[in-house]
Computed example of a mutant assay.
Amino acid sequence: MRDGRGVELARVELGAPSWWVSMAEGLVLLLVVRGEGTARCRGERLVLHEGLARLCMPHEVAVVETERTPIALALFQVPRTLLRTAPDGVERFEVSPALASLASDVASRWKREAREGIDDALTEMLALLPSARTIAAERPRRSVLEPGAVRRARLYLESRFRTTPTLDDLVAESGASKFHLARSFRAYHGVPPHTYLNYYRLAVARTLIASGARGSDAAVATGFADQSHFSRSFRKLIGVSPLAYARVGDARPTGRGSSVRRVPDVRTSDAPGPRASSDEGA
């Protein structure tokens, strides 16, 4: 679903064994609704279990895997424009028990299609999220700091995402060898550089479409020369076609509890690979 402010909630269900990748321009709160698995985020390997809630930085790649047990996730994406500018006091980049409880309540209501009260709960959640300043100052634990060569390559990709940087370009920018850069980049971000670039483009395109841009315009603006390639890539990462995603935003606030649009879940088959079904989701 996406409410009138641009806050999105997606439910993802993974069979076992399977894997799925998430990346968004906004802040993401990931909640494990059911099951267990693992996630690789910024060099860390996290054990996922029911009730776990974690914040993901804007443009952070999260690779979720499950081997034996199916897992269901609820992901809240919050546009950076909705975050408080400055912290109210001392803040940490973490999910408080109150925030986790609200997220669980909203996910449960949405699953039951009980919309009453969702708007108010989302508003409470926004007030409990860390401020934009806290997010900007967030750094991983020292043991998983982003290697310098990887950081230089990532920033180069992000600053030139509308073009197609080559591996030679990244090597020249990072100062590392091709082998070392490719291995280090994947070890930290969970995906190789060219895949990261593709996900980054799609995250930007997703924001553009949510803001009212046509899918074809978003494709051009983010460096996709081929519309069909853009549509296939968008569906693979987001779970729906660009057109279906745009239609989710057609809902407008008309009263309490009515400013959200229901989006069917994204499910994967019980086989390896991020195979989202044709059901709508994000």
Rank of each mutant, 00 (worst) to 15 (best):
L27G: 08
R232Y: 11
V248W: 02
R186L: 02
A16W: 00
V78D: 14
L197D: 02
E36A: 11
G6C: 04
E138K: 05
D265K: 00
L208A: 13
Q77I: 09
R92L: 07
S22H: 13
V95F: 02
A72G: 15
S177R: 06
L170H: 07
P70T: 09
T195R: 12
I118F: 03
A39P: 13
A153K: 06
Y200W: 12
T85G: 09
A100K: 03
E146M: 15
G223W: 07
V33F: 04
Y245T: 02
H180L: 09
M125E: 02
D217M: 06
F93P: 06
Y188H: 13
L31R: 10
V33L: 12
L181V: 01
A153R: 08
L170K: 03
S231F: 00
L155D: 15
A172M: 04
L167V: 10
S18R: 03
D88Y: 01
G26R: 08
E67T: 03
G148Y: 04
P58F: 07
L27R: 04
R232G: 11
V21I: 15
A176H: 08
G212S: 10
T254C: 11
T81Q: 14
G215D: 07
A103W: 00
C56H: 15
E94G: 01
E60D: 14
S108W: 04
L99H: 01
G43W: 07
H189C: 00
T38P: 06
H229N: 15
L122S: 02
L157I: 10
S159C: 07
H229D: 15
V90N: 03
S211E: 15
A153F: 10
A282P: 02
V28H: 11
A10Y: 12
D226T: 12
S22R: 10
L243T: 13
Y199I: 00
R162T: 14
